[in-house]
C-alpha cells in the first residue's frame, strides 16, 4: 500500500484548479474573478497568479461590497489590489444603500438577497461578464455536492438544476446561448482543510481576522458577534466584552459568528481545525436551517 503524502493531494487539486482557470480565460469573452477577500478567495487569487505566469492575470476581479464587511477586510483588499496591480471592480447595490438596507432591519434572507445577490447580478450585467469565477466548494454544504465546476445560468442569472450540463473528463462545454452566463468553481473538489494547508504551504496572505485576538463581541442568539463599528445597535441587556476570538469564515460582520479560540498562528489554527471538524457554515447566520435554503438562494442567482 503506497502512502500518499498530503503534498501530492494538494498538487493534484492545484493542477485541476489551474486547468479550470485556463479554460475559462481562453473560452469566455469577458470573465471575472469574484473576490470576496476571505481564505477561499485568497487561494483563488494565488492560483490565478500561478495559472497565467509569467503573464498577468488576464481578467478583472470584482468585489460584491454589501457595505457591512469587517473594516479589516476592506483594508486587506485594498492592500492586495495595490500589491498585485489588480483591476478591481466594486459592485454595490446603491439603491439598497440609499434605502438603508441593513442586516438589522431587513432579516437575513432579504438582506442577503438585496445586498449580495442583487449586487452580484447588477455587477455582472453592468460590465457584461459572461463567466464569473467563484470559490465555492462541494464540501461546504450538502446541496453543493451536485454543483458543477462550470455551472450554467439562464437569462436573469437563474440556476436551473435540469439545465446543468453533464461534465465528462476534463472537457468542458463552454458554449453559451443567448442570455446565458457561467459561474465557474475551480475549488469544487477542495475541502476546508485543503484550503488551510495550501495557505500554509504557499504562504498566502490572509486577513488577520482568521487568527485569534482580543476583540469586542456581544453574545446574541447563541452566537458571538463582533462590534466592528458604531452602526451596531445594542439590544437591552447586551454588553460588549473583550474575548479571544477568531472567524472561520468572513462576511458581513453582523452576520458572522466568531469562535472562541487561542489559535493566533496558522499551525495552531490547522490543529484546531483537524480536531474540531465542525462545518464552517455553522458560523454563518445567513444560511438558515437546512441545506435547502442555499439551493433556493442559488436559484435566485446567488453564488
Amino acid at each position: 500500500m503506497t502512502d500518499v503524502p498530503y503534498e501530492a493531494v494538494l498538487d493534484a487539486l492545484e493542477a485541476e484548479a489551474i486547468h479550470i482557470y485556463r479554460e475559462t480565460a481562453a473560452a469566455f469573452r469577458n470573465p471575472v474573478l469574484l473576490y470576496s477577500i476571505g481564505k477561499d478567495s485568497s487561494v483563488l487569487l494565488h492560483l490565478a497568479l500561478k495559472a497565467f505566469a509569467p503573464g498577468p492575470i488576464p481578467f478583472p476581479v470584482m468585489h460584491i461590497d454589501t457595505t457591512w464587511k469587517f473594516q479589516e477586510m476592506i483594508s486587506f483588499r485594498n492592500q492586495r489590489v495595490a500589491d498585485l496591480g489588480l483591476d478591481l471592480k466594486i459592485a454595490i447595490n446603491e439603491k439598497g444603500v440609499a434605502d438603508g438596507v441593513s442586516p438589522f432591519n431587513h432579516g437575513t434572507h432579504e438582506y442577503t438577497r438585496l445586498m449580495k445577490t442583487v449586487a452580484l447580478r447588477e455587477g455582472i450585467d453592468k460590465y457584461g461578464f459572461d463567466a464569473a469565477i467563484g470559490g465555492a466548494r462541494r464540501d461546504e454544504e450538502r446541496s453543493r455536492a451536485k454543483e458543477r465546476v462550470f455551472s450554467l445560468r439562464e437569462p436573469g442569472h437563474r440556476w436551473e438544476p435540469r439545465k446543468q450540463r453533464p461534465e465528462f473528463w476534463r472537457t468542458a462545454n463552454t458554449s453559451l446561448a443567448e442570455g446565458q452566463s457561467m459561474r465557474v468553481f475551480p475549488l469544487s473538489n477542495w475541502t476546508e482543510l485543503d484550503v488551510w494547508r495550501y495557505i500554509r504551504r504557499e504562504e498566502i496572505p490572509i486577513p488577520g481576522l482568521y487568527y485569534s485576538k482580543e476583540r469586542p463581541v456581544v453574545e446574541r442568539d447563541g452566537a458571538l458577534i463582533m462590534v466592528d463599528d458604531e452602526r451596531f445597535p445594542l439590544r437591552e441587556g447586551e454588553t460588549i466584552e473583550m474575548r479571544s476570538v477568531r472567524f472561520r469564515t468572513l462576511g458581513c460582520y453582523p452576520l458572522t459568528g466568531a469562535v472562541e479560540s487561542f489559535a493566533d498562528n496558522i499551525d495552531d489554527l490547522i490543529t484546531e481545525m483537524e480536531t474540531s471538524r465542525i462545518s464552517e457554515r455553522a458560523g454563518r447566520l445567513i444560511d438558515g436551517e437546512g441545506g435547502g435554503s442555499m439551493e433556493a438562494k442559488k436559484a435566485e442567482g446567488y453564488f
Partner: peptide, 30 residues
C-alpha cells in the same frame, strides 16, 4: 441523510443527478 441531495429531489423522493463527495483513505489517498 448524509448523502441527501437537492430539495427538488427530496420533495419528489428521487435522485436526479450525479453527486460528488470526498473521502480520505488511511494511506492518505483522496
Amino acid at each position: 441523510l448524509l448523502t441527501d441531495g437537492l430539495e427538488a429531489e427530496r420533495e419528489q423522493g428521487i435522485t436526479i443527478d450525479v453527486a460528488y463527495r470526498h473521502m480520505n483513505l488511511p494511506n492518505g489517498r483522496r
